[in-house]
């Protein structure tokens, strides 16, 4: 009898549970979480290769929301052979089904080059992050299934499986499947396992989260390369929100002049 009551209770509660915990809605919540109207970050990309070679790059990143669109400017400040390089990205509303626009400024040529964004599986400046990993999340790339709720790194998380509709690699991201750990309250991805052809190839882990000016901010994360070995840590040394950044910071002019 107790089993039947428990079963009835589960049965009654299931529609509410299913609606509240729709994994696609959860992922949209992650994509659309409040990160302020604009923000400025000082970042380091610390890459440790399989043979122990360590390479560090420093950059400034400005981001600004334009409704459902986002513009970002990345400007490398170190080391000297990369300093002055800039990347400008315009991300459009996912409903527009339009590829991002990207431009790359190369100081050696004094020119800004257009970048194709159809495929983003390639490494971002040779690191273990790909261009797809750093772009704004696209929820419709995958179909989602909520596997379970659990505690991960002392935080309550949803564990969500993401698969492409046809089970093959997404031609844009290069991934066929992901296993995503989403902080239930902060709407942050704390862990992400990436698969290609059924084989796990990379693992993303958040190592440090803090609240900055009221916004949950990932201060350190790590992408581990399970195929070639090695890892890349993304360390945020400074973050500022709602600075009322001018539009001129998100133009080719900013790439040539640099940002501060």
């Amino acid at each position: 009898m107790r089993i039947s009551l428990l079963g009835l209770g589960l049965l009654l509660s299931f529609p509410v549970f299913a609606e509240a915990l729709d994994p696609t809605t959860i992922m949209r919540g992650v994509r659309d979480r409040d990160e302020g109207q604009d923000r400025r970050s000082e970042l380091s990309l610390v890459q440790t290769m399989a043979d122990g070679f360590v390479r560090e790059r420093k950059l400034l990143m400005l981001e600004k929301e334009y409704g459902e669109e986002r513009k970002s400017t990345l400007y490398f400040t170190a080391p000297s052979d990369t300093a002055g390089t800039g990347i400008l990205m315009h991300s459009y509303a996912e409903a527009q089904a339009r590829e991002d626009d990207q431009w790359l400024y190369l100081p050696a040529l004094r020119k800004t080059r257009r970048i194709a964004t159809n495929s983003k599986e390639g490494p971002f400046l040779g690191t273990d992050f790909s261009f797809a990993d750093i772009e704004r999340m696209r929820v419709d790339d995958y179909q989602y299934k909520l596997l379970r709720e659990e505690v991960y790194q002392d935080r309550p998380v949803y564990v969500i499986e993401a698969r492409t509709a046809d089970g093959l690699e997404n031609p844009r991201t290069g991934y066929s499947q992901r296993l995503i750990y989403v902080d239930r309250e902060r709407k942050l991805i704390l862990r992400d396992e990436f698969f290609r052809g059924g084989r796990q190839i990379k693992t993303f882990e958040v190592l440090d989260v803090a609240q900055v000016e009221g916004f949950w901010t990932v201060n350190e994360s790590r992408m581990s390369n399970l195929v070639e070995g090695g890892e890349t840590r993304l360390v945020r040394s400074a973050a500022d929100y709602n600075l009322d950044l001018g539009d001129q910071n998100f133009s080719e002019r900013a790439l040539r002049n640099g940002i501060r």
Binding site: E99, D101, R113, R114, I115, A116, T117, N118, S119
Partner: peptide
Amino acid sequence: FARPAGDWVVR
């Protein structure tokens, strides 16, 4: 001019 076309950029 410059614009992406699939995996390529045409300019």
